[in-house]
Design a protein around this nucleic acid. Sequence first.
DNA 1: ACGCCTACCTGCTTGC
DNA 2: TGCAAGCAGGTAGGCG
Length: 336
Amino acid sequence: MPELPEVETMARDLAPLVEGATITEAWWDWPPVVRHPAPDEFAHLIRSRRIEHVGRRAKWLVLDLSGSLALAIQVKMTGQLFVLPAGTVHDKHVHLRLTLDPGPVAGGRMWTGPRWLLFRDIRKFGRVGLYRRDGSGTILGPADQGELFGDHGPEPLEDAFTLREFRQRLRRRRGRLKTTLLDQSFIAGVGNIYADESLWRARLHPLRAADSLNLDQERRLYEAIRGVMGEAIVRRGSSVDDYTAPEGGGEMQEHLDVYQRTGLPCHRCGRPIRRFELNARGTHFCSWCQRLPLADRTGSNRSLARRARRQARRGRNWSDLEGLEAEADPLGSRAH
DNA sequence: ACGCCTACCTGCTTGC
DNA sequence: TGCAAGCAGGTAGGCG
C-alpha cells in the first residue's frame, strides 16, 4: 500500500530508467486507467514527448514531459511500474503500456532497443493523467483549470513545512487525530501504516481530538511524522501485503512498531499492541503508551465527544474488536 | 463547510 | 473440494 515513502522509492528507482527517453506510443486495455484527458487525446498528446524528470507529489508519481506536460500516476493500493524490453510477455494486470525510445541515457549507457514502461495494477484502483504546467510550473487540473494538487496539504518533509505551520493547521481541525493525518488536504502522503506509526511514536491516541493537543504533544507528533517518513524512505518503504518495490523490496516493515503487530509486545512497554477499526481501517496502537485523556472524551471537542458517546451506546465502532472482548478498550482508559 | 461513509476493484483467507 | 463471504485500503464523490 504505497504511501509517501513507497512512492518516493518508486520515483527514485524509475528515474534512471526512463529519464531522457521519448514516448513513442501509448496502449491500454481498460480505458478508465486513463483519467485525463480522453484516452485518444491522451495517446495523441503523449506521443513524441521526452521524459525530462521523474518526481513525486503526495502519493503520486509525476513525470515531467517535454512541452510543459506532466504525466501524473496515482498508484493507489496496488499499482506498480516496470521498465522492460518491448515485447516482453506480461500478465493481464498490466493496463497501460508506454513504448519508450530510450535515446542516450544518463551515464552514457545506451539501450539496444525500445522499452516498455508498464503500469500494472491488480485491483484497478490506480489512474494516470496527462496535465499541463502553467508558466510558473504549477500543474493544472482537468480543463487546464485550478491546481491538480490544489486540494493537497504540504509535503511533510519539506523545509517549508514547519512546526509552526503544523500547529496552526492542527488547531483548525475538528476531527480525530488519525482521521486528520489520513486527510490528504491536511498533510500529503500519510497513509494507514505511517499514521499508526507516527501516533505510536508521538504517544498519542488515534481517537484524540486533533485540536486538543498541548504544545509538547504537537511537537512530538510533528517530529514523529517527519522522523517516520524520513526513516521509511531510507529503508525504501514497507513491503506489506500486495506491495513490494520492483527494484528490491523495502525493509521498513521490519522496523514498524505497531502496524500489523496486533498482539505482539509494544517496543516501548512490552504490553500487547491492540487493533480496532476506525473509518473501516485497521488501527494499531498501544493502549498503555497512547492514552485517551478523560477530558478529551468529554469536553475539548463537543461534537466529537457527542458522536463518540452515541457510538459507544450503540456498541459500534470501537466495541466490536477481534478476540479479547474483556481486553478490548481502544479508549485506552483501563488501568493495567 | 466540514467530516463521515461508501463505491470502486481483485486476490487471498476463512468458514461452512 | 467448492463456494461464498470477509477483508485489505486510497480516495472521489455523495450525504448529512
